[in-house]
Amino acid sequence: MAKPLVATGFFTGCFGCHMSFLDIDERIIDLVELIEFDKSPINDIKEFTRPVDIGIIEGGVSNEENVEFLREFRKHCKILIAIGSCAITGGVPSMRNTVPLKECLEEAYLNGPTIQNDGIIPNDPDIPTMLDKVYPCHEVVKIDYFLPGCPPSADTLWAALVALLQGKEVALPYELVKYD
């Protein structure tokens, strides 16, 4: 039987959840036995090559491109897991949610104390348009599982993934569920 396919992706965040994933250390060898990666920054596959079984996403949704990629993940993944504070609540980037976008950008690019000469708010066509707020993933697409943490520990990610691969319910022990 073919190995289950897994894809991972990241949106607005710090990539810390992926780093934590790499913290599974030597278990990565077991992992390779268990699964095959499709689209993921870990193997640098940029596009989905086929439908996958499990999608793992980190980061909140702060711009149009995030929305597009997240939708793509939803379309291709049977099970979609949001991992980490940013994916689940918007996280640290969502601290801007109580400030109007215009004010944020003006502070960053026009009025901030480190701005020299005349600043400009970037408007290059290649830069994705920002959303008014940073949204958690579950407000953009349907999410099947949440693994909180900043980041979720390697043990948390490993335990959840193994359970899912074995078709079991994800029931994590107390120490493995943290919001920070």
């Binding site: 504070s85 640290v92 949610n97 109580t98 579950h138 949440f146 900043c150 919001y179």
Partner: peptide, 26 residues
């Protein structure tokens, strides 16, 4: 607006702790 990752109370916060105990993931 609870930004747990950057809060000094993290780990000692009773709101978090109740979330853990009562099984809130998100």
């Amino acid at each position: 607006n609870h930004y747990c990752p950057s809060c000094e109370a993290g780990g000692n916060c009773e709101l978090q702790a109740l979330g853990y105990r009562l099984g809130m993931l998100a």
